[in-house]
Design a protein around this nucleic acid. Sequence first.
DNA 1: GCCTTCCATAGGAAAAATTCCCGATTTTCT
DNA 2: AGAAAATCGGGAATTTTTCCTATGGAAGGC
Lengths: 210, 210
Amino acid sequence: MTCLRVAIADDHAVVRTGFRRLLELEPNVTVVAEFGDCETAYTWLCANRADILVLDLSMPGRGGLETLRRLKARVPTLKILVFSMHGAPAMVSQAMQAGADGYLTKSSAPEALISAVLDLGAGGHPLSQEAARALNEAGNDSLAPHLVLSPREFQVFTLLAHGLAVDEIAGRLCVSAKTVANYQTAIRQKTGLGNALEMFRYARTHALLE
Amino acid sequence: MTCLRVAIADDHAVVRTGFRRLLELEPNVTVVAEFGDCETAYTWLCANRADILVLDLSMPGRGGLETLRRLKARVPTLKILVFSMHGAPAMVSQAMQAGADGYLTKSSAPEALISAVLDLGAGGHPLSQEAARALNEAGNDSLAPHLVLSPREFQVFTLLAHGLAVDEIAGRLCVSAKTVANYQTAIRQKTGLGNALEMFRYARTHALLE
DNA sequence: GCCTTCCATAGGAAAAATTCCCGATTTTCT
DNA sequence: AGAAAATCGGGAATTTTTCCTATGGAAGGC
């Protein structure tokens, strides 16, 4: 078996170095790149080859999930292992739907990272216990926003929950305000969350705010 | 000097009893009544005579402040000492504006309660250090909602910050939805808080959510 | 390869909410 | 008492939201 080429994306330099050290203990693994933000990660991975990306979802640039989705669309052969701060059911569910190949929470033991990477290399889909349970829970409560909403709707949802106005969202997403307003209506109907404050509260208790 | 007739309003029975014990150590003080909610306090104090009311603002019944105002209007001779959980500048400021004669925070020493009651009896306006500082701070930041808003506007503000819709507020306040909408507009203009979520955040960081 | 379904996008028209302006009372302050 | 401020709401203009509809694209089945 040839060496696994791993890239790391995390906004904390300390964490990146920690991962690198940890992973390079393994003879079959090389760390080929580190990124501190989503954009550089995306461009590099489009241009160069890597087998696995360890991705922290809570990164600056407003779009860990978005990057995940875009990467999976552009570089389908790339395996993506999400390493997130919180194992909230909603987050896990969204990440897996967005195309993640594995999900580890911060509470995982260091060795779990190594075995997860190796597992991924072998074609597996490693989930930490916490993530697996979360995924299960998410499946149960069928009324949850993150399940009934389409990816784009979910994105608008989080923006609304952050308190952005329809116009601001339209500007940020480069679409018509009309479109965002329509999404908002759909979101309200599907989730039953009637205003931004309710969305905020929901998002907060479900740890959906990045 | 005749005996000071003191009433206590607090939703925690333990606290009430604690106060009673404490106050009755003082020969010149009698505790003449205890209340667990605003309504009974209000009705009793309208019908019977007391010199001083020790009032906890964070009481059930949605309106510690409101009760304070109503009592001061109906029974102007009654001295009211607010004993609040939080000494947030905004709270102190609102309470004093609403007619409180003194303000103690929970961090005050037990003896402070006694001396505050005696001070009140002598016509003073006892403030705990924390409250005094808070009042000072509040005076400084002149853009603060609680200072530019009228009492009614402030009330609507907190309701909005709690996430209530205009219609719900109208129902609860027994006024036309039109009126509430107009208040909302005024609030937004005066405070610069453009939507309910911003109001919520502001209210939370300033500890205005009771 | 074709067909169905879902998603993203947005326009138009109708409905609802908000703003702005104004007036009538009542309260409050001096 | 008189002035200033506050409460309450009507009317009209404006903005937002909803509801319905439509187009193009991507995913998936057969």
